[in-house]
Design a binder for these strands. Structure first.
Lengths: 264, 264
DNA sequence: GTAATAGTGTCTCTAAGACATTATTGT
DNA sequence: ACAATAATGTCTTAGAGACACTATTAC
């Protein structure tokens, strides 16, 4: 039997049904805090609860990253050809396929991680009853969370786990890639960049050391020669403007402070 | 409509068929070289060509890592309850779902990465006509490879890409995790560990500096007090024996030498 | 003996971090 | 004037890497 014979006799529907979906962990910085795009589900299961944007992959011809971009565009109201979506950094996060994670049927979900500069407020689209950028600090990400009840939101499906994995990935990638620039506008200042690191890592960084460190990494940032016009600051000289450099890895890396204890 | 109504009216087969498979990049050290487990396909498509071990996920109730272990066991002839398989480190590598990657239908494949100490020669099982540990140096992993033809093997599907991604993941994880100990027997020497690093990174390391570095990382290795009986070596004192320590991250990390150029 | 190897010591240079200092802005 | 901040300078210490050296084994 050669390939052609095999294809002719092959019936894909003979297999048990497994559906493939794409979920997106879209992160941005809003008001100095790390925020994730969430939608309120309009249909069962988990109707009314908040969840990551996502949906079924179109079986015929849609690549997985394309599906992720499509889902992101549906929830933010941005078209794929729009410049704002083109600036979004997208990478695969992982695949979640435990039996029972969706009550309807066996669903394997490929999660993507998106990093974006400040985007417009989302417009609910598709199946979503609502959509909003939500500070991650307002979310309960562990079963044993110690947050005060009422102020936290629990996510549908296993999306709390997916989001937690995405946050850890983001925190780690800030260390050894210039990913932080993906959260900034095309031109930014070193203090802007430091604000991104502080929001994602949840720690204050020493301004002087951070400044010198960023400039010492080859290709991290490139000066434009201009200076910020400094709106809304509380004094001090005008910071210089930079663009993202051509480095794809930071060498040496910017390591998170105080991680010796988390090692075991 | 509540959840129960929705489930009753839901027909999973109404969706376009997408099949989910699991492929395994199983790495080990054989004769001092990094080797990957490959099977020769017994059926179309790509009958007769070498490929990564893998297969369809059982839709009803099999978790994805379980499917990966099952596929690995089928090809190596090791039972899941066997101690050898229990020592294998398994982690998800990524998911590959480009349309057309399989000529039969839309197939989304979840790839897993397995690290094992020296395992027995595989026994062909399942659909495989043959199975073998193959040194990765004998494989053509890029389309524009400069290897001499005839000495290289080309893999089926997009498995060359999956393997290349797995190798890069392995090389990176040696830097900041104690993963190298997963390639060693329960007790090993520092030179054994150095041989793992050299095989995976493809570079010779300075023996003295490596030794001091490994011992300086808290929790990387723990001494047993014993010494190797040193069979087959070419002279020198008996090296001391160690076991894997309790660290899950190496701090500080063991960085690969000479990566400054690959940064842009 | 000779060669190879395990393990340790020493030196240099880079880089991280704590801290100080100067200059420039808003209030 | 005062507070806040950008940007740079100084000092200490940890760590990576080059190299040397001793001790122990196989041949």
């Amino acid at each position: 039997m050669d390939d052609a014979d095999f294809l002719a006799s092959y019936d894909p529907r003979a297999y048990d049904p497994v559906a493939v979906t794409v979920d997106v962990v879209a992160l941005t910085i809003r008001d100095g805090a790390l925020a994730v795009l969430l939608v309120r589900r309009g249909h069962p299961p988990f109707a009314g609860q908040w969840a990551l944007p996502g949906g079924f992959v179109v079986a015929d011809g849609e690549d997985l990253p394309d599906a992720a971009v499509r889902e992101l565009g549906e929830e933010t109201g941005l078209a794929a050809g729009d410049g704002a979506l083109a600036r979004v950094h997208l990478e695969q996060l992982g695949t979640y396929g435990a039996p029972g994670r969706d009550p309807r049927m066996r669903i394997v979900s490929v999660a993507y991680l998106a990093f974006a500069p400040e985007l417009p407020d989302p417009a609910a689209g598709g199946d979503a009853a609502d959509a909003a950028w939500t500070p991650v600090a307002d979310l309960r990400l562990t079963e044993t969370g110690a947050q005060p009840p009422g102020t936290t939101r629990k996510l549908a499906f296993d999306h709390a786990r997916i989001l937690a994995d995405g946050l850890e990935r983001a925190r780690a990638k800030l260390e050894y890639t210039p990913l932080a620039t993906a959260f900034c506008a095309a031109e930014f200042t070193i203090p802007d960049l430091r604000a991104v690191y502080e929001a994602v890592w949840g720690e204050e960084l020493h301004a002087g050391n951070f400044h010198r460190k960023v400039l010492s990494v080859p290709g991290f940032v490139a000066g434009t020669g201009g200076t910020s016009d400094a709106p809304g600051r509380r004094g001090g000289p005008r910071p210089r403007l930079y663009r993202a450099g051509d480095a794809r890895l930071l060498h040496p890396a910017l390591l998170r402070p105080g991680r010796e204890d988390e090692v075991r």
